[in-house]
Simulated scan of single mutants.
Amino acid sequence: MKERATLVCWQHGKVLLVERGRAGWSLPGGTIQRGESPADAARRELIEETTLEGCELGCLFQFGGLNKRHHVFFSLLPDGARPVPGNEILGCRWFRPGKVATLITSVPTREIINLLFSHVATARGLVSA
């Protein structure tokens, strides 16, 4: 099974997605390398894809199916954090969680956003769609 580190970066009521060309938009993240912890992989991928460094990460949950397992991390980014596309990324952009369902994204991206925001956060009035 492939192991991936996936990041949900949050700022001002929006989630950060990266554009990967034909694959569309996705959460930042990538493959966990041999001997690397999921948290270290998340930090590395965030730097490689967005140039964001020094962000605090919290482990949320694992998500996956038969072939891939995503170790999902959360980071509340400070006001001054400005992602810049790096390493095979065409663009970085902030979206309201409700908008993600209308974008071309991977299934894991849609499902992770759905799990995090459509039930708990919206019900509590924390996130506007």
Rank of each mutant, 00 (worst) to 15 (best):
R96Q: 11
S75M: 00
G24S: 04
F117Q: 02
V120E: 14
R110C: 09
G125K: 06
P108G: 02
L103H: 09
G98I: 14
E53G: 14
R93E: 07
V18I: 08
A101T: 10
C59W: 13
R69W: 12
S128I: 05
G64L: 10
L46N: 01
G30P: 08
T105G: 02
P85S: 09
R20K: 15
V100L: 04
K14D: 00
T105D: 08
S37Y: 08
N67Y: 03
T102M: 06
A121T: 15
A123W: 04
V72S: 03
I47G: 04
A23D: 01
S128L: 05
I112W: 02
L46P: 01
W25S: 03
I104Y: 06
I47D: 06
S128W: 05
G64P: 00
F61V: 04
A42M: 07
A121E: 14
R34I: 08
T109E: 05
V120K: 15
R44N: 06
S118G: 07
L27V: 05
T109L: 03
T102G: 07
A39N: 11
C59R: 13
L16S: 06
L7P: 02
K14R: 12
R43G: 06
A121F: 15
D40N: 12
G91D: 10
V72E: 04
S128T: 10
H71R: 09
E45Y: 08
P28T: 00
E48S: 05
R93Q: 09
V72G: 09
G24H: 01
